[in-house]
Each structure stands twice: as C-alpha cells, then as structure tokens.
Design a protein around this nucleic acid. Sequence first.
DNA 1: TTGTAATTACGAATCTTTTCGTATATACTT
DNA 2: AAGTATATACGAAAAGATTCGTAATTACAA
Lengths: 127, 127
Amino acid sequence: MTKPTNGELEILRILWDHGPSTVRFINDQLSTDKEVGYTTTLKLMQIMYEKGLLERSRDGKTHIYLALVSEEDTQRQLLDRFLDTAFQGSAMKLVMQALGNHHTTTEELDEIRRFLDDLEKNQQKGV
Amino acid sequence: MTKPTNGELEILRILWDHGPSTVRFINDQLSTDKEVGYTTTLKLMQIMYEKGLLERSRDGKTHIYLALVSEEDTQRQLLDRFLDTAFQGSAMKLVMQALGNHHTTTEELDEIRRFLDDLEKNQQKGV
DNA sequence: TTGTAATTACGAATCTTTTCGTATATACTT
DNA sequence: AAGTATATACGAAAAGATTCGTAATTACAA
C-alpha cells in the first residue's frame, strides 16, 4: 500500500467523513481551511485515482469519487511509520506524550482504562 | 521551530542516542539500515546546521555535530501535527490504535494506568 | 443550434527534499 | 616535500509533491 501524502490525506479525511463526493464538494471543504484552486484539487484526486486510492463513477458530466482505503487501515499504517521514526517504536512513550500534552476528559480516561483491561485479558488468553 | 524532514529526523535520532558525532559516524549508523552516500549525509547535516538544528565544532579536520533541538520538544511537535492530520486531533483514538496494534507488556500497561491516575489527580487540582 | 457554465484532461511550472559528482582543503605517512 | 586518505564546500541533478493555466468535453438553457 502506498503511503498517502499530506494533501491526499486531507482529501481522504473528507471522503471518510462525508462519503462519496464530487471534486467540487471536496474543494469547497478544503477551501474553508485554506485557499486552494479547483484544478489543484482535481489533479490531486486524479492522481489518487491512478494510484488506486480512490474509485470513481460518472454521474452526468461529473465524477463521484470514493475512498478505496479505510480510515482504520490508513491510520494504522501511518501510525506504524510515525512510531518508528519519531518514537523508536515505543508505543508506550507515544501514548504518554499524547495523553500528557493534550486535554483528555475523565470519561475518555475511563474509556482508556477499560480498554487497557480488555487488552490485558486478551493477552492472557494467548494471542 | 522548523519541522525536521524525515531524513533530518533519522540523523537527530542518532545524535540523541549517541551524543555528539562526526558525519562519518552518522553515515555508518545510517548505512546499517539503507544504502546512503557519505556526501549525502554530509550535505544533509550541513543544511541542518544552517537551519539551526545542529551545532558543530572543529576537531582537527573533521566537524563534531551536536543536536540543538531536544528529543522531547521535537516529539511533541511532531505528535501535535500527526494527531491533527491523521487522527483529527483525538488523542484517545490515537492512543487506542497505538496500544491495540503494538505489543505492550503487562508492566507497561500498569505504568500507563499509574500515569492515567496521576493525570486525573492533576486535572482535578486544576491543570 | 448556439451560447454558456461547469467539468475533466493534460502538461508544465514551482517548491521541497534527497542524492551525489567534483573541487578544494586538511592531516598524516613515508 | 610529495603522496595518500579522508574531510568539507558547493552546485546541480533527481525525485517527490503541489499548484495551476489552458484546452477539450459535456450538459443544459435560450
């Protein structure tokens, strides 16, 4: 699987959140954050299509694009790489940095605790 | 602070682990993983020096390079960016992915629990 | 059918990062 | 001092990612 670039990731993000979309829609969404030309977005999505990151179908004169890679798989892949280069593969270090530097609610902390418990149970069972 | 590129990060990693080093040493370390020419490494380190990422001092005919940015600060910076682009800023999601997809020992899980407890206590006290 | 607006296709310019060839300088050995 | 090995300096090529101008296409309305 090819690692999506930053620009590609922004587009995937919108497709994951909103489902199949036209170039026009994606470009409108991107434009709320930064200035970006329509053909720029179009070109990027065409490249992603060639790479196999997106599928598309015609609807009249426009194309409807669809993400072919899942959010979860992509996040896992990016995380693996990031963990290696920035944290030498130590998930624990990263986790502590992430929790320490960013606000997390009590509810979220509890959810993480439950998650840790499950994790431990499953590890004991083997796997 | 300028975000280090991937190549720069690899060099910083070695400097953080081994302390002040020559280009030769860095290049040898890099070469264990992948093929990389000596002048390539040299050039990269010269650029990092110009950017202010590294300091250097002469020792005979060679330079000894030293990281000017700390591992912690750099990790925090990279993590912030990564969290935004890949996980929409949700530290919890990232944490769960990280723990779920990578092996973590029971000891490490316990350490994280203690960390969570501390975090909560300090939050109650008001930041 | 003709004109208009919006879309796609394509190629090239720009920008960033990485790689490396070549020239020059420095220290050491004989 | 001359020769050799290793270092640095510099510039430019190569590779990757992003941006955008322009032309061709399509759908629709007058």
